[in-house]
């Protein structure tokens, strides 16, 4: 009917297994880990007193970015100890996102829910753990009832706060990352398919064929946009993790 067959979702997202229970998504994740670790190991081998260049320069730029625009903006100076964790989150997510625009690979590993979900659960465990460490068992009291809530409202407020902190937070972290990358991936697929369909159209109206330049231009534009999104999503994931950790270190009492 449309003259354009959109492939089923499994064809877009499912990569063949390299061997049982290890598919190419997992391969991208492993590659992201290895590349990240290698970059920072190489950088740490360099002489710290000489002027930075090469891998050390890159590593310093990334660390400075994390410190300046994530840690200092949310956790403040006392939170600088969180830099390694947020740095590894950021680098890993970015390196998982960026294959979405690398030719031949063309698949963001975070477009499948497994990686975002495990990262979100990791952040969830860490911010609850931080809360218990800093405020003891009273953390759960602060979590459920912000100070100054009238007793009559306590069940309602407690219920809402419980839902929003314990359930909605990890869910929205997961879905934000996964759906952003999936949406970008499907957009790229759509415009690539449109270009192909117009270019190879078997039609009497021959002027349709050069029109394939239009979706192709959009494809180029979206590829650039996806690079931005890959960076922005990694940044937002890291900064939200920092905000949640900050919330559980200071608690509601000092926040207001």
């Amino acid at each position: 009917m449309l003259g354009l067959e959109f492939p089923p979702i499994n064809e877009i997202l499912r990569w063949q297994d390299l061997w049982p229970s290890f598919n190419k998504i997992a391969l991208i994740a492993v590659a992201a880990t290895v590349i990240g670790i290698t970059l920072f190991l190489l950088a740490s081998r360099k002489d710290p007193l000489a002027a930075p260049k090469g891998s050390r320069n890159l590593a310093e730029v990334i660390i400075e970015f994390i410190e300046e625009s994530i840690v200092m903006q949310t956790l403040g100076k006392k939170g600088l100890g969180w830099t390694p964790f947020l740095l590894s989150l950021f680098v890993f997510i970015f390196l998982c996102n960026i294959p979405g625009v690398i030719p031949i690979i063309q698949m963001p590993a975070t477009a499948r829910i497994a990686i975002p979900l495990s990262l979100a659960l990791l952040v969830w465990v860490i911010y609850i753990g931080t809360g218990i460490k800093h405020q003891g068992i009273g953390y759960f009291g602060h979590l459920l009832w912000p100070p100054g809530v009238p007793t009559a409202l306590k069940p309602l407020v407690g219920f809402i706060e419980f839902i929003s902190t314990i359930i909605v937070t990890p869910f929205s972290l997961t879905v934000r990352l996964m759906a952003n990358m999936l949406a970008g991936h499907i957009l790229l697929v759509t415009f690539a398919l449109l270009t192909e369909a117009l270019l190879l159209a078997n039609t009497a109206q021959i002027f349709l064929v050069p029109m394939s330049i239009l979706p192709f231009g959009m494809l180029i534009f979206l590829t650039g946009f996806e690079i931005l999104v890959a960076f922005l999503q990694a940044y937002i994931f890291a900064i939200l993790a920092a905000v949640y950790i900050n919330n559980s270190t200071v608690g509601h009492a000092e926040e207001h």
Partner: peptide, 24 residues
């Protein structure tokens, strides 16, 4: 500007989540 930008991204992230749930 730096502080406003960080807060802006946070706000966008929270708002955008609704659209993304619609996409899911």
């Amino acid at each position: 500007a730096g502080m406003v930008r960080t807060t802006m991204f946070l706000g966008i992230a929270f708002t955008e989540a609704l659209a993304l749930i619609g996409f899911v």
